[in-house]
Simulated assay, not measured.
Amino acid sequence: MPRIYRSRVDTADFVLAGPDAPDDGGTEFHVVRPGPDGRDDYHGARVVLSDFRNGPYEDPDYVFPADDTYIVIDGEIVMEIEGLEPQTLTAGDIASFEKGTKAKYSIRDFVRWVCVR
């Protein structure tokens, strides 16, 4: 049976992404569509809205857990993939990354994006 995965984004529905995220900001996420096994955490979900407001932040050793496509809604994120020029993604940009891709990413101040896997 066909399904429509619909979500109304309300900050009251957001959950802190990790135990170190402060209550007054930090990374929050809203799962729009859980993963095939019902996982609704950031790495297990299929569609996630992520809101990072606690920059600056850098992750020099990020590995994409799945084939991910990012749609940047607001803010800026710099992605560095070995062997490629750094890419600054801003509002309206769409970028797709293959599972297992190693990256360094930097958030200067804030970024809000949708991740589709």
Rank of each mutant, 00 (worst) to 15 (best):
L16Y: 10
S106H: 12
A66T: 00
A17D: 09
F110V: 11
M79T: 00
F14C: 08
R39G: 11
P60Q: 06
T101M: 05
S7D: 06
G44I: 05
E58K: 07
V9I: 15
D40V: 07
N54P: 10
P2N: 15
R33A: 07
P22I: 00
N54A: 14
P34A: 10
A21Y: 02
D61G: 04
D51C: 15
D51E: 13
D37P: 06
D109A: 14
V15N: 10
D67E: 05
R6G: 05
A66C: 05
I81E: 12
D74R: 09
M79P: 04
Y5I: 11
I73L: 13
Y42N: 11
T88S: 06
G18I: 08
A103C: 12
A66Y: 04
G92K: 10
V111N: 02
V48D: 01
E98N: 04
A17F: 06
K99M: 08
A12G: 14
I94L: 11
E58F: 06
E85K: 13
T69P: 06
Y5D: 12
R46E: 13
W113N: 05
G35Y: 03
D24H: 07
V63L: 05
D67P: 02
D10R: 15
R108I: 08
P22W: 02
D74S: 10
P19N: 13
G26P: 02
R53A: 12
E82C: 03
P60S: 07
R8L: 12
T90R: 07
E98T: 07
P22V: 00
G25T: 00
V72D: 03
A17L: 10
S50W: 06
V9C: 12
G25M: 00
V15D: 01
P36T: 11
S106F: 09
P86K: 05
T69R: 13
N54R: 15
G44P: 01
V9A: 13
G25Q: 02
R53N: 13
G18W: 10
Y5T: 10
P2R: 15
I71V: 13
G18F: 03
K104G: 04
P65I: 06
D61R: 00
L16K: 14
D13Y: 10
D40H: 13
G18E: 05
P34I: 01
D37M: 08
P56K: 03
P60E: 11
I94P: 03
F14D: 03
P19I: 08
V63M: 04
D109P: 11
E80Y: 00
R108N: 14
T90K: 07
D41W: 08
P86C: 05
L49M: 15
E85C: 07
F64P: 02
M1G: 11
L16M: 10
T27N: 01
V63C: 03
T88G: 05
R6A: 13
E28R: 08
Y105H: 12
A21N: 09
E76M: 01
D20A: 09
V47A: 11
R53Y: 06
F97P: 03
D109R: 04
F64T: 04
C115M: 09
P86G: 09
R33L: 08
